[in-house]
């Protein structure tokens, strides 16, 4: 009886370990690696992992913000990748102050662009915001890269 119990516990532990690694494999460094491979001819600058649980129906979807400094004369690419095991699709928006420069989601057509490219002509502090469409649970990564000349 005790032997059977210990045996079951050992198996459960091994299985649990395996599936915990599997669950992490999508969301986190592996997702960044997968996304990085899609960057094309660019130089990686920074990654922005984002993970949100499903938003309450009564409240606005959660938004995560990051400041970035962008330099005039450089063309930046902002690429996003979603963890396919979760329903949420990430919307990334670039702001200069309160002015929206660009977003990867076209509200009129409901279309997502794989990346946004921005040839900067005014150096300064900008802001990247990340949220999941309709407040769904999601895990994603945004990558900021400089396009090679």
């Amino acid at each position: 009886m005790i032997k059977r119990l210990l045996y079951t516990m050992a198996i459960t532990t091994l299985v649990g370990l395996f599936f915990s690694f599997e669950a992490k494999a999508q969301c986190g460094d592996e997702l960044t690696d997968i996304c990085h491979a899609e960057l094309g001819d660019t130089r990686f600058i920074r990654d922005f992992p984002v993970q949100h649980s499903e938003s309450d129906q009564s409240s606005s979807p959660r938004v995560t913000s990051y400041e970035v400094t962008l330099n005039a004369g450089t063309t930046y690419r902002i690429l996003t990748c979603n963890d396919q095991t979760k329903p949420g699709k990430v919307i990334v928006s670039l702001y200069r102050g309160d002015q929206l420069i660009a977003t990867n989601f076209d509200m009129d057509s409901g279309r997502f662009f794989p990346y946004v490219e921005y040839p900067v002509s005014a150096s300064g502090r900008y802001r990247l915001t990340f949220t999941f469409k309709d407040g769904e649970e999601g895990c994603a990564v945004g990558i900021l890269a400089a396009v090679e000349d």
């Binding site: 005039a72 660009a102 662009f113 946004v116 490219e117 900067v120 005014a122």
Partner: peptide
């Protein structure tokens, strides 16, 4: 550092969004 801001425009190139920004900064 001086700034001249103009409203940015966007266009779709090969299925991706490209910003056309006429703002500029001068150092």
């Amino acid at each position: 550092i001086s700034y001249v801001y103009e409203e940015p425009e966007t266009k779709v190139v090969d299925g991706n969004l490209v910003v056309v920004d006429k703002s500029r900064s001068e150092v």
